[in-house]
């Protein structure tokens, strides 16, 4: 078994107005930072998982996202996986 860490980003679906992002965008503009647009606010979830390989780790993370971590009615997600090198025995 190998250990992987997953970094999951969850955001509201594009079609849904992100009111929090809108409020932050307006705050940026009122702080005289006019160049910013399209502010989207989401969640960042990190977890580690043991799996035989990266493919099975990916499908486990996808299942966790589909079942619990996100709601497909309103949210999209993407994630990256990184294998953690085993600690060498001293």
């Amino acid at each position: 078994m190998k250990t992987y860490t997953a970094s999951i980003t969850v955001t509201l679906r594009r079609a849904i107005l992100d009111v929090q992002g809108k409020a932050v965008e307006n705050a940026l503009h009122s702080l005289h930072m006019p160049g910013f647009a399209d502010v989207r606010i989401g969640k960042h979830i990190e977890l580690s998982i043991q799996a035989v390989d990266a493919d099975s780790a990916s499908s486990a993370v996808r299942e966790a996202c589909d079942k619990l971590l996100t709601n497909p009615v309103m949210e999209d997600y993407h994630f990256t996986l990184q294998e953690i090198a085993p600690v060498e025995a001293a």
Partner: peptide, 17 residues
């Protein structure tokens, strides 16, 4: 009920936060 799939749709943050 929405999360459980017994009703369609979802309830999200109020428009005015």
């Amino acid at each position: 009920l929405c999360e459980a799939g017994l009703l369609p749709g979802a309830l999200i943050r109020n428009r005015n936060l």
